[in-house]
Amino acid sequence: NRMYLVCPMNMSAYVDPQKSGQEVWEEFSHSFTPAVREVVEFAKKIPGFRDLSQHDQVSLLKAGTFEVLVVRFASLFDVQNRTVTFLGGRKYSMDALRAMGAGDLLNSMFDFSEKLMSLGLSEEEMSLFTAVVLVSADRSGIENVNSVEALQETLIRALRSLITKNHPNESAIFTKLLLKLPDLRSLNNMHSEQLLAFKVH
């Protein structure tokens, strides 16, 4: 009845059987909290983000943090060797994680990371794309949709201009990036379902 945590945001996939559920949960929380804080720090640096209402800043971050983390940690997935590196530095093969109980979500994250990394974006491009992922006016609970929409449009225009400038012969990259947004939503939904199931167990 050994328990495993297959989310790469853990330090390790192995759970100490001596630990209580509460201790396991707290350890997981200690592991992902710094990553969430980094997402907030990143959001603060997006020009115009701090001008949104505090309610909308929180709503965007609550809804989009997982998607931002998927983009930021895409490099944890090693496509060539089919491995995933956890935050604690331990590396696991996808087969090993599957044997530990990982399902469609991790496979889908792996596929997403593979496609995103294949675009060969620069750090600046990746950063701007991440801002576009976060500032989405159709997240639930947004009170001032017009302000978020205006910021979203500005960021999308900036991303298009940067991609066009850096990849003049690869006009499809911008379209491919925009098509990643629904993929991220779908991963987010799968993740939410897993979280609910996890809490139940």
Binding site: S29, R50, V58, K62, T65, S192, L195
Partner: peptide, 27 residues
């Protein structure tokens, strides 16, 4: 009402990280 993000305590972490900055600005 099931709120997976909040089950992780995400809102609390986000609010504290955002507020920290507000306090810094007030100082």
């Amino acid at each position: 009402f099931n709120d997976p993000a909040n089950n992780l305590g995400l809102e609390d972490i986000i609010r504290k990280a955002l507020m920290g900055n507000l306090e810094e600005r007030q100082e």
